[in-house]
Write a protein that binds this DNA or RNA. Structure first.
Lengths: 242, 242
DNA sequence: CGGAATGTTGATATGCCTCAACTAAAGTGG
DNA sequence: CCACTTTAGTTGAGGCATATCAACATTCCG
C-alpha cells in the first residue's frame, strides 16, 4: 500500500473526501525515512519544515524533563500523523521518536499548505485529525490525573487496542505494543515497580497481558470495564469485534 | 472592544493576517451569551454547531468521570477559543463551563468554515490556535503525571500568569484566577487537603499566593524556578515584565 | 559465553488521600 | 441588620498506594 493510501484511508475514517481531494493527496511527494528503535525523528526545539505519516512501526511523542527524565505523551500507529501538531508551529515543544523500527514518510509543509489552499476539504480533514489527537491528549490528562493505577493501565491498554483495531492492526486478539515497562511507566506517570505489579494483576485477571512486545487482550469487555473506558473521545466509528 | 477585535488581536500574536483577512473576521456575525458561575456552555455528548470566543471572564474545559467527579482540562481567558476543538468534531468529548461570570460570543460553524474556504489564512490562524491549545494539553499531561505536588501547583500558576500577561490581564503583579481549592485539585489531580498545604507553602515562600479569586505573583522568577516552567510550549512572544 | 537491558520481588519510606473536626467567610431570609 | 445556613478554607490523625532502593532472575544480544 502506498503511504498516501494509508493516509487517505485514515482520513476517510472521519472525513468526506471527493475524488479531486484524493487525487491531490496522492500527488504529494513524500520522503521516506526509516528509524531505528529509540531514534528521534524530530527534537524539542527543532523548527519543523515537514510533517510525517507513520507507514510502519510505532512512534511516540515525548517531553524531556528538567531532571533528564521522559514523559511520553502519545503513541502513534501506522496511518497516524505524529507531527501534524508541528504544521503551524514555529518550534517543536516536544520530540518524536521511534519506539520500534519504524518507517515514516515526510511531506514538506509548504506542499501541504499549498494543497490545503487549493482543496480546503483536505485541510479540514487533516485539521480534524489534529483535533482528534488533541482529544487523545485530553483523555491522557484525565487518565493520568484522576484514575487509580490499575484503571490507568487498563485504560491505556484499551485505547491502544481500540485504535489498533481501527487501523487494522489487531490479529488474534492482540496488537503490537513494543514498550518496555520503563516506558509504560514514563507514559502513565508511575514507577516501573508499580507498572510491574499492576501488569501482573491484570495478567492474573485474564483480561489482558503484555508479552513479547504485543498487547494480548483476552477479554476486551472486561478490560474496558476495569479501565472505565469509553471510546467516544477517539471520534472513530470502528468497534473491535468482541 | 468588539469581540472580533479581541480575536484578531489574539490571532495576531502568532499569525500574519492581511487586511482582507481582518475584514473577513470582522464581518462574522456572532451571538452573545452571558454565563453564570459554574454554568455549562456546552456538554459532553452535545453536537456543536457553533464555536465561542471568551469575551470576559474565565471558562474551563472538563471531563466528567464515571464516579461523577470532574477533571478540569484547561482554563480559558478573554480572547481564547475554548471550543474551537469542536469545530470539526461530531460530538463533544468534554464539557465547557464558566468559572466565574463570563460572556462569550458564538459563531456558527458554517460561517466559520465558509470564511476558511474563502480566506485560507484565517483558517490557518485558527488552526494554529487549536494547535497551541493542544500543546497546552500536552504540558498538562506532563505536569500532572511527572511533577511533584508543589512543582505541579507552581507550574500551573506560572502558566496562568504568563498567559494572562500575554492577554493583558495582569495588573500589579496579579491576575484573575477565580478557582476554589476544590477546583484546583480537580485540575491538578490532587486532593483538596494537598492543594491547601502546598498553597500555604507557596505563600510562605513569598513566590505566589491565591487570594480573593486572584493569583498574586510576588516573585515570578522564583515561581518559575519552583515550577520548572519553560514557556516555549505556549508559542507566544510576550514575556511578563519581571 | 558474557554483559547489558529488562523484568520480578521484597523491604522500607513517604507523599498523598481520606475522614473528620473546626474556623472563616459569604450568602440568605426574617 | 442580624441570625442562620451554606460554602470554602484549615488542620490533624491515620492509613494506603506508590516511590525508592536493592537484590535477584530472566531474556536479549553481541
Amino acid at each position: 500500500m502506498k503511504p498516501s493510501d494509508i493516509l487517505i484511508k485514515k482520513l476517510k475514517h472521519h472525513s468526506q473526501l471527493d475524488s479531486a481531494d484524493v487525487a491531490a493527496i496522492r500527488s504529494l511527494e513524500c520522503r521516506f525515512r526509516e528509524l531505528q528503535p529509540g531514534e528521534d525523528f524530530i527534537r524539542q526545539g527543532d523548527k519543523p519544515t515537514e510533517s510525517a505519516i507513520v507507514v510502519e512501526g510505532m512512534v511516540a511523542r515525548y517531553h524531556t524533563l528538567a531532571n533528564g527524565g521522559r514523559q511520553y505523551i502519545s503513541l502513534h500507529l501506522s496511518g497516524d500523523w505524529p507531527d501534524a501538531q508541528g504544521l503551524f508551529l514555529e518550534e517543536m515543544d516536544h520530540s518524536v521518536c521511534a519506539v520500534n523500527t519504524a518507517s515514516l514518510c515526510a511531506i514538506p509543509h509548504k506542499d501541504l499548505i499549498c494543497t490545503f489552499r487549493a482543496r480546503p476539504n483536505v485541510g479540514f480533514a487533516v485539521w480534524r485529525e489534529t483535533l482528534i489527537d488533541a482529544s487523545i491528549f485530553r483523555e491522557a490528562v484525565t487518565n493520568n490525573s484522576s484514575r487509580a493505577g490499575m484503571t490507568r493501565l487498563a485504560h491505556f491498554f484499551s485505547e491502544i487496542y481500540f485504535r489498533s483495531n481501527a487501523n487494522g492492526l489487531v490479529e488474534k486478539s492482540s496488537c503490537p505494543l513494543p514498550l518496555s515497562q520503563m516506558q509504560l511507566g514514563e507514559t502513565l506517570g508511575m514507577s516501573i515497580a508499580t507498572v510491574n505489579r499492576h501488569l501482573q494483576k491484570l495478567r492474573r485477571s485474564r483480561a489482558a497481558d503484555l508479552r513479547n512486545g504485543r498487547l494480548v487482550v483476552a477479554n476486551f469487555p472486561k478490560l474496558s470495564s476495569i479501565a472505565d473506558f469509553d471510546p467516544k473521545y477517539l471520534h472513530l466509528q470502528v468497534q473491535p469485534k468482541v
